[in-house]
Design a protein around this nucleic acid. Structure first.
Lengths: 194, 194
DNA sequence: GTCTATAGGCAGATAGAC
DNA sequence: GTCTATCTGCCTATAGAC
């Protein structure tokens, strides 16, 4: 294994932008904010991401890829479908613990103000999310390890949306403890449904 | 009954601001946007709401009051707890049909950028929401008309958050049809839970 | 690749006439 | 109560030196 290369300026910018976008939204931070944090000037950021919409698009691409990777890692683990669901919920809980939201959750709230390319990527995130979750649910039900009625995609949608909403609300009202309690109830859609 | 008085300028401003806040967020519109829409100047708006944070606070107060009124109307109807839950979900569905989000849902996403007085009102909205819903759930269970395990407040939280998240996501991905399907599954937390 | 300097626009907010 | 006019500050973005 090669030693980890020290992160490029572009990566540092993405890191800072991601952290801010997940807490104050894409419209909630400026190039100046990031420039101050990294001790560079706004011109430097424009050199790497000529427009803010480009930064946003790259941000979404990296975030979605990483999220998909995390889902793939869950799939590879030799655990039951119910356990995989719990691992899925833990992805959200970890985000909340840092005082953040899901990037695509907060961007969904800003959707109407986003440039077109970013909008498409937000939609794609939810579509890929649902596809992964629906497959997990379908397989789990086939094996008799999960119980629920109806189309797995609908249950997948309900679970993803439930976690997104719980994250959103729990950050302002409830905190991590209540996130857990609510998330457990959300996940029960694929355990106890008739 | 007296005839409805023609709305004051302040009311018209609140109406326009509310519509915009529910679609682009509180930081997504400016005094100039509203001024253009109402064919007045920004100075006029400042006369009625000297700072934007005042407008935001008044907006939240009116919205929360109206939402509470809607909940009270549901409570007064002679329908089963399960039907009341459906009526609750319909409040959200109606908002989506206009392409909007719940005001407090979208403000929860902007929470970190909101002035203090607005933050408190957002939190209060969710607290009052949960209180109403928890009471409905508790009564329904006592009467044997609703089935669920655990603290009614946790189930209430899961349902409110589930609907908020479904609203958020369905606006960008899924639309009204899938909102309904997911909402039904969310509400099942208080019907089929073991 | 990073800087200084700056353009051009839009934001929230205020003073004072009518 | 509404207007015109304006201030100040921040934002995105660019030109050009190093």
């Amino acid at each position: 294994m090669a030693p980890p290369p020290s992160p490029s300026t572009a990566d540092l910018i993405l890191d800072a932008a991601e952290r801010r976008a997940q807490s104050v939204g894409f419209n909630g931070f400026s190039y100046a904010d990031i420039a101050d944090e990294l001790k560079v000037t706004t011109a430097t950021i424009h050199y790497h991401f000529s427009a803010k919409s480009d930064l946003g698009a790259d941000l979404l691409e990296r975030y979605t890829r990483r999220f998909q990777d995390a889902l793939a890692r869950i799939s590879r683990r030799q655990i039951s479908p119910a356990e995989q669901l719990r691992a899925y919920a833990r992805l959200y809980e970890d985000v909340l613990r840092e005082g953040r939201l899901c990037l695509c959750g907060i961007l969904a709230a800003e959707y109407q103000t986003l440039p077109g390319p970013m909008r498409e990527k937000v939609v794609a995130f939810f579509a890929e999310n649902e596809a992964w979750l629906a497959k997990l649910l379908a397989v789990g039900r086939e094996r008799g390890e999960l119980r629920f009625a109806g189309d797995p995609r609908d249950v997948a949608m309900a679970i993803t949306c439930g976690l997104e909403g719980t994250l959103l609300v729990a950050r302002t009202f409830g905190g991590v403890a209540r996130f857990r309690a609510a998330a457990e109830i959300v996940l029960a859609a694929a355990k106890a449904a008739a």
